[in-house]
Design a protein around this nucleic acid. Structure first.
Ligand SMILES: [Zn+2]
Ligand SMILES: [Zn+2]
Ligand SMILES: [Zn+2]
Ligand SMILES: [Zn+2]
Lengths: 129, 129
DNA sequence: ATTTTTTCGCAACTGTGTTGCATTAATTAT
DNA sequence: ATAATTAATGCAACACAGTTGCGAAAAAAT
């Protein structure tokens, strides 16, 4: 029944910083590469899980099936998260960015109840264009 | 320079049949389960690759990162494929279905060039609702 | 029937992600 | 400040989707 308290550790702060200053969605290998052995592989996964649980980040599955994590920016924590924005994967530089303002409209057929949405598109980003 | 000719094999026909009569998007493990050891695991992957190449099926990445394949229905082979329809994953029965007629509209910010799109949503399907 | 080309099965491998457990570090209580 | 408590970490081992190399088998072409 006890609430698990949030603890601030070196690994967590470091990983959060990497995500913040990258501004893009990163996978565990990408984070690992940038952190130059600050902590174990497994710890990265566990920290990301915690950040996800605590609502600091959200995750997205790429077209390659790889899970990436990005800092939550455009979501209102008080009124529930909004993670139905589009994620863009650049074929050239490989970066995955949150297009926070692009929220597609769609009308589901009768009978379908929507809970979670994931819009992933790929192409060429403005920098590589 | 030689065109690789299309060959009809037992495994291929069987897998195509499974996909056709299921009507949903299936993963290799799901196909394997239904085929009761008709062929090897690797063969399933290779057949699916071929069917994909030949334009008979398209693939979609689930929220679980799993690749699933579905028969192409609503795509015009002559005028290029249209695989930008929505895929729906039911949280209850686990089925992944093509919502061929649901094609979300979105306007990308200036500078982004779109090539591929993947819209994956989850919730409860009409049958399980 | 023989040759050619594609497909198959098997084994081995890669890479992401997970789990158990003993150790370490952060928070809380004394 | 010290001890007790609780959560986080590292390591090894595991699970499992997906891939690759290669010799054997099966199609299609001759
Ligand atoms: Zn780019
Ligand atoms: Zn995002
Ligand atoms: Zn269902
Ligand atoms: Zn589909």
């Amino acid at each position: 029944m006890k609430e698990k308290q949030v603890r601030s550790t070196a690994a967590k702060q470091h990983i959060r910083e990497i995500l913040e200053q990258s501004g893009t969605a990163l996978s565990q290998p990408e984070i690992q590469e940038q952190s130059e052995g600050v902590c174990d592989r497994v710890t990265v996964y566990r920290v990301l899980d915690r950040l996800l649980q605590e609502g600091e980040v959200h995750k997205t599955i790429g077209l390659d099936g790889m899970t990436r994590y990005a800092i939550c920016k455009a979501c209102d924590h008080d009124h529930g998260h909004q993670h139905d924005h589009v994620h863009f994967s650049c074929e050239v530089c490989g970066e995955v960015t949150c297009l926070d303002k692009v929220i597609p409209e769609l009308k589901l057929p009768r009978g379908y109840r929507l809970k979670e949405a994931s819009y992933m598109i790929s192409g060429v980003c403005p920098t590589c264009n």
